[in-house]
Simulated assay, not measured.
Amino acid sequence: MRTEKEMLDLILDVAKNDERIRAVYMNGSRTNPNVPKDIFQDFDIVYVVKETEPFIHNAPWISVFGELLMVQEPEKMDKEIGETVDLSQNYGYLMLFSDGNRIDLHIQTKDYMLRTYKGDSLTMPLLDKDDCLPPIPNASDKDYWITMPIEAEYFSACNDFWWCTQNVAKGIWREELPYAKEMFEAAIRPRINQLVSWWIGIQHDFQISPGKMGKYFENYLPKPYWDMYRSTYANGEYEETWEALFVACELFRLIAIEVSESLSFKYLYEEDRNMTRYLKRVRELPKEAVDIF
């Protein structure tokens, strides 16, 4: 597998030897000093070019980066399914190579770069032939820090969590596994993650990132909380899905109350009690039932 230095040297050599490429910058995890380094980190690279069309119309040019296992071109696919996409301004190649390295490369015009360059605090300039890249602070994950909620956001998260639990319960009782699982992961999980993120933010004065999709939760949660969080992932059995739902409720309650106390918000105790009673009743409900209560 090519090393980080070999990959960066290649990326920069390609740019230096092509007069159409006027600047290079990088963002993503490789610019973040707070994340662990490993072999799966992408190289998130942007080439600032005079025009995108000469690159797009010469598809084989990306072979210069190595032997490809697979490539994805998001803007091309969007355009082909009928979405409105301006390929003349920005175009991406997501490339996985046979040695395991991955480059997410975007080519974009100077005008496009000037509109977006300062929009990500994890941006690091690598090459600037024309001094066209605006000055920016050193790369940091500041843009990804957890934001302190206002009480309306907290209320919405709690209300939505408890409301959506009944959909999961309904799906389990009906033995509609895809529905129950989708409701859990698409409706319940985001609210759990939101409260967990706020809880972590409180512990660190809201100057920390839990990582994309909460991938660093384990690093910041006490072991009992982390063990509960893990238990919210159930297998394909209905009984285990019930268990995961009730663990999710318990964890949500603990975290939400601590957040409410720290931020002087009002927790929805009545909704919690009512929905917990409802969930327990549905779990016990026989299949021939014609009434819930």
Results as ranks from 00 to 15, higher is better:
Tyr112Gly: 02
Leu114Glu: 00
Leu114Thr: 06
Leu114Ser: 01
Arg115Gly: 07
Thr116Cys: 06
Tyr117Ser: 05
Tyr117Thr: 09
Gly119His: 05
Ser121Val: 09
Ser121Gln: 07
Ser121Gly: 02
Leu122Phe: 00
Thr123Pro: 01
Thr123Ala: 09
Pro125Arg: 00
Leu126Tyr: 06
Leu126Ala: 06
Leu126Asn: 06
Asp131Thr: 14
Cys132His: 08
Leu133Trp: 01
Leu133Ser: 06
Pro134Cys: 05
Pro135Ile: 11
Pro135Arg: 09
Ile136Gln: 04
Asn138Ile: 15
Ala139Gln: 01
Ala139Glu: 01
Ala139Ser: 11
Asp141Glu: 04
Lys142Trp: 02
Lys142Met: 12
Tyr144Thr: 13
Trp145Asn: 05
Trp145Glu: 05
Trp145Thr: 07
Thr147Ile: 15
Met148Asp: 04
Pro149Glu: 05
Ile150Phe: 08
Glu151Met: 12
Glu151Ser: 13
Ala152Thr: 15
Ala152Cys: 12
Tyr154Ala: 06
Tyr154Asp: 09
Tyr154Thr: 10
Phe155Ser: 10
Cys158Asn: 12
Asp160Ile: 15
Asp160Pro: 10
Cys164Val: 14
Cys164Arg: 09
Cys164Glu: 09
Thr165Lys: 02
Thr165Ala: 07
Gln166Lys: 12
Gln166Leu: 15
Val168Ser: 01
Val168Phe: 03
Val168Trp: 00
Ala169Gly: 08
Lys170Met: 08
Gly171Arg: 03
Ile172Lys: 04
Trp173Asp: 05
Tyr179Ser: 10
Ala180Leu: 03
Lys181Ser: 06
Lys181Ile: 10
Glu182Tyr: 06
Glu182Asn: 14
Met183Cys: 09
Met183Tyr: 03
Phe184Met: 09
Phe184Leu: 05
Phe184Pro: 08
Glu185Cys: 13
Ala186Gly: 10
Ala186Phe: 01
Ile188Ser: 02
Ile188Tyr: 04
Arg189Gln: 11
Arg189Val: 15
Arg189Thr: 15
Pro190Cys: 08
Pro190Ala: 09
Arg191Leu: 14
Arg191Gly: 08
Arg191Ala: 10
Ile192His: 03
Ile192Gly: 02
Ile192Pro: 00
Asn193Val: 13
Leu195Gln: 07
Leu195Glu: 07
Ser197Pro: 03
Ser197Leu: 10
Trp198Thr: 09
Trp198Cys: 04
Trp198Lys: 05
Ile202Pro: 00
Gln203Glu: 04
Asp205Ile: 14
Asp205Gln: 14
Phe206Leu: 09
Phe206Ile: 13
Gln207Ser: 12
Gln207Cys: 14
Gln207Arg: 13
Ile208Pro: 09
Ser209Thr: 14
Pro210Ala: 12
Pro210Lys: 06
Gly211Leu: 06
Gly211Thr: 09
Lys212Asp: 02
Met213Ala: 15
Gly214Trp: 00
Lys215Asn: 08
Lys215Trp: 04
Tyr216Ser: 10
Tyr216Leu: 13
Tyr216Pro: 01
Glu218Pro: 02
Glu218Thr: 11
Asn219Gly: 14
Leu221Asp: 04
Pro222Leu: 11
Pro222Arg: 08
Lys223Cys: 11
Lys223Gln: 14
Lys223Ile: 15
Lys223Glu: 13
Pro224Trp: 00
Tyr225Ile: 15
Trp226Asp: 00
Trp226Met: 13
Asp227Thr: 10
Asp227Arg: 12
Tyr229Asp: 03
Arg230Glu: 10
Arg230Tyr: 02
Arg230Lys: 15
